[in-house]
Design a protein around this nucleic acid. Sequence first.
DNA 1: CGTGTAAGGAATTCTGACACG
DNA 2: CGTGTAAGGAATTCTGACACG
Lengths: 111, 111
Amino acid sequence: MANDSSYKDKKVITIGIVRDLTGLSERQIRYYEERKLIFPERSSGGSRKYSFADVELLVEIANKIEDGVQTHEIRKEMLRAQKKQNQNDVTRKMIQGQLNAQFGLRKGPSS
Amino acid sequence: MANDSSYKDKKVITIGIVRDLTGLSERQIRYYEERKLIFPERSSGGSRKYSFADVELLVEIANKIEDGVQTHEIRKEMLRAQKKQNQNDVTRKMIQGQLNAQFGLRKGPSS
DNA sequence: CGTGTAAGGAATTCTGACACG
DNA sequence: CGTGTAAGGAATTCTGACACG
């Protein structure tokens, strides 16, 4: 396994707690979602659920906005970073595939 | 620093999400608190807030109850484990203190 | 003992909109 | 553009109690 799916990325924090954790207003938090900067999940009843990673991202977003960066710019930055990450993933997988093809490899734990 | 205070122990999960995460009923979750097995924090408005560690503990508690162990027994087990842990901590600190007294030690980062 | 449930109230969250600028 | 706010409604949570066993 790569990284434990662990706690950081589980969406379990409601907006009120995110407010307390970040110091942002609920209005701000919802607005950043509207601008496609953050993507909470929803409970069955419709309440937003955030992860710790989301909480940290929200703080970064708020800092940039304080610095005068517009949400649209922030979004473009994020998309670029995302794209770069995806490309890295693809590259890594491709190289791994080549290695497997050349040398063969165990799939499960060596039994 | 010892261990990052990290995500596992931060009390940020409301009872409804704990219910979804554990499969337990809210009644059960509150009852285990009444029996002193679990200690959520409270939001300013009075809502319970749990950590991931709490969620895992709740599952363990529920398993023991399913096995016929009574809450009072579970509590005693937990207190014993707690006591042992405290003793380990004290011992470790005492030894560390002796080492410091004997050999002296830097307090901050070596500047 | 451990859990379900109905009861009434309070706190939480949601959406769409108006406001300022 | 980013944020505050009042509005009305729905979902969430809380406590104390009765019930079963």
